[in-house]
């Protein structure tokens, strides 16, 4: 059984705002399936007593004190912006996704 369906690939493409053709969907679904099958093999050796790992280093509580550091200047902050208006990053509108 495939690890990922063509529909799931289409859904992810939409979430990522990637314009994927019908033919590309077939290609990517096949490629992603190979990758996922390979990664899934890890599950074959993961026994019940081994918890899922999200972090490779055994550290907790890496915190910083609440002390202000220097920010970037506005010119520096906006230097890499695709476009600037009124000292703000100017980007295309996003419809129907008002957070």
């Amino acid at each position: 059984m495939a690890a990922i369906s063509r529909d799931e690939v289409a859904h992810l493409a939409r979430l990522s705002r990637l314009a994927v053709t019908e033919q590309e969907l077939d290609t990517f679904a096949g490629q992603l399936d190979v990758i996922l099958q390979a990664v899934a093999r890890v599950g074959e050796v993961a026994a019940a007593e081994i918890p899922p790992t999200s972090h490779s280093v055994p550290l907790t509580n890496v915190l910083r004190e609440d002390v202000v550091i220097n920010c970037l200047t506005r010119e520096e902050a906006l230097a890499g912006a695709p476009d600037v208006e009124a000292d703000r990053f100017r980007v295309p509108r996003i419809l129907d996704e008002e957070a």
Partner: peptide
Amino acid sequence: GRIHGATESLVDY
């Protein structure tokens, strides 16, 4: 000023 009808968004972070 709302998103409907807007063409661009200006962002302050």
